[in-house]
Simulated scan of single mutants.
Amino acid sequence: MALIRPGDSEPPGSEGAVPSARPAPGRSDDQAGHALRAPSKLHAFNRYEIKYLMPSSAVPALRKELASRLDVDSHGVGGGYGVWSVYYDTRDLRFYWEKIEGLRFRRKLRVRHYGDRLTVNDHSTVFVEIKQRVNRVTQKRRVALPYHLARDLLDRRVMVEHEPTQRAFLEEVLDLLCRLDLRPVAMTGYQREAFVGRGAEAGLRVTVDRRVRGRDRDFHLGADAENRLIVPARLAVVEMKANERVPYWLTDLAAGLSMSVVRISKYCQGVEAFGRVPRSIFHVSDDEPAGAAVPATALSEA
């Protein structure tokens, strides 16, 4: 199955989208795959996403196939990197329910850090981000800020120093916080491996997330607080993200490894794992099977 981009104009919020530039001959350039992680001005992009669950034991087979066709994200050489996020929501979990109910337009607000959470301090770079879904397209807008400024904005609800290009976005964030009375609800963290396309597939990105953990308190990103698994350790979450279409070879690979397409949200997993709401039909629990068995040949070749 491939996802085809409609031929109409881009939805609102696509201004400043990262171009899918072709790398120079002989040079691996993954800028298009993770350019939003550069601490610069406001960034935005639109993508299609497919999510899968697979047994963690099958990840080596997937990694081998991906490495033969894609480049390893330069930020994740040597085992990947940590991704830590604090999600904001209303008292009645409006953003959670928008996801569960599958609204055609929905969004969530979060602050995110890449790397070792125990190194986070006031001056660490974090990303304040609005991620939203418009029909089948995922849109993400974010700005990079020092953590102390991000906390001023999100927790103290005051406008912070900014560049002119960031003003409209920061005002939107502040409006959401004040109008909906948002507060931190859940924190998630996981170890991510990422692969990015090259050449004609420069906009393609595949991520493999394992050891998905979370907590429902102590929301400072650098807090030395206990986290617990919110997705069973035997499972990995795989996301395929593309600007226009997911290549057929990639979806064929997923089928060959018996990967299961799922509707999963790490934020929703966290909310349900800590008993904030009854578990939905989309919840992945410890007593559920991993899905169809991975072919023995795929495992033996890993």
Rank of each mutant, 00 (worst) to 15 (best):
D175R: 11
L153Q: 04
H162S: 11
E171V: 04
L176I: 01
F169S: 09
L153V: 01
Y147H: 15
V173A: 07
E161F: 02
P164I: 03
M159F: 08
R157Y: 03
Y147M: 09
V143T: 01
R141S: 15
R141C: 14
V158M: 12
E161Y: 03
E172C: 09
E163A: 03
E172M: 01
L154K: 09
L176Y: 09
P164M: 04
P164W: 05
V160K: 03
Q166W: 09
F169P: 10
R141D: 14
E171Y: 00
V143R: 00
P146D: 10
L145W: 01
L145Y: 07
R141L: 10
L174C: 05
L170N: 13
R156N: 15
E161W: 00
E172L: 05
A168F: 04
V143W: 06
L154W: 06
V143Y: 04
Y147S: 14
M159Y: 02
M159P: 11
R167M: 08
Y147A: 11
E161T: 02
H148Q: 10
L174F: 02
P164L: 08
A144Q: 08
Y147R: 12
V158H: 06
V160I: 05
F169D: 06
L149C: 02
D175E: 10
L154T: 07
H148T: 09
R141F: 13
A144M: 05
R151C: 09
